[in-house]
């Protein structure tokens, strides 16, 4: 498949106008490497699943997402540079409307000097304390941290990141909230005490979700989701085998699909 015209006279023809429209939303076409495309596909499928939850009658209180809530923007036009960005923002709106708290949890927090923050928390509150820490943006009181000065996406646009740690055995993780939801539900202008109370109530819930002994410190729903969908080495091996068979069937050149280290029995 090389161009849209390949779709004519197929069952997908009817989607062509919408595909074209979507294409017009991609403003980062120049960096569309395979990895980026795959990542994008993963994101849109996850967001589609989230959307299904939000529009279902499950009515959850929280909806947790593995990964941050950062949206990449077109640097001049100020709107998302990829379709997934649009989807995420739409999800945020929908979640607010449904009264669902949308959280993005990243084990890989990418926050500079997070270990120093963790150390300070430990020094002040003692070993084994469960803590969270807001990373304020320039607009927030006390915002404009030096450590994030040279980082475009920290704090992410339209998101509020916190560092948190519920177990001294683990490195701190990061959790993002929709900034609009946060301003409406957590932040109380000119009242840091009330704001802190709201934050505490929020993190009490999340902390409670993170007490399963199997994944202590990490929210159970995400851990279970991970367990039920992660690819094992065995799955990967099977996938490679299937891929090889398909290549053979399609008459493509035979190519080794095992990881190179297998060549040396490593």
């Amino acid at each position: 498949m090389t161009s849209f015209s390949d779709f004519t006279e197929t069952e997908y023809e009817m989607y062509l106008p919408r595909l074209r429209e979507m294409e017009s939303l991609i403003s980062r076409a120049q960096i569309l490497t395979n990895t980026v495309v795959h990542e994008e596909l993963r994101k849109v499928s996850e967001y589609a699943a989230l959307r299904n939850v939000l529009t279902s009658d499950l009515n959850p209180r929280y909806l947790l997402l593995d990964g941050g809530l950062a949206v990449f923007l077109h640097f001049r036009r100020k709107y998302p540079s990829m379709p997934s960005g649009f989807m995420l923002r739409e999800l945020c709106t929908l979640a607010r409307k449904e009264g669902v708290v949308l959280c993005g949890v990243s084990k890989n927090h990418t926050i500079p000097f997070a270990h120093r923050i963790a150390k300070m928390a430990q020094d002040v509150f003692g070993d084994g304390t469960k803590w969270f820490c807001l990373l304020p943006s320039k607009e927030d009181p006390g915002g404009g941290l030096h450590i994030t000065e040279d980082r475009t996406y920290i704090p992410p646009v339209l998101a509020v990141p916190y560092l948190f740690s519920f177990s001294s055995d683990n490195r701190p993780s990061r959790i993002d909230f929709d900034r609009i939801w946060w301003l409406e539900n957590v932040f109380v202008p000119n009242d840091p005490v009330a704001t802190r109370e709201n934050e505490k109530a929020l993190f009490r819930d999340i902390e409670f979700m993170s007490r399963d002994a199997r994944w202590y410190g990490y929210p159970v729903p995400l851990a279970m989701a991970h367990e039920s969908c992660k690819l094992s080495y065995e799955d990967l091996r099977l996938a490679r085998e299937i891929c090889r068979d398909v290549r053979i069937e399609m008459g493509l050149e035979r190519r080794k699909t095992d990881p190179p280290r297998a060549d040396y029995n490593l």
């Binding site: 177990s167 007490r211 399963d212 002994a213 199997r214 202590y216 279970m224 367990e227």
Partner: peptide, 24 residues
């Protein structure tokens, strides 16, 4: 325990982290 490679570690966590639980 299905999906748990190190059952002793889980038992240890249950002991040390007094508020921990095993859900489902």
């Amino acid at each position: 325990l299905r999906q748990v490679d190190d059952i002793s570690r889980v038992a240890g966590t249950l002991m040390v982290e007094g508020d921990s639980y095993l859900s489902g």
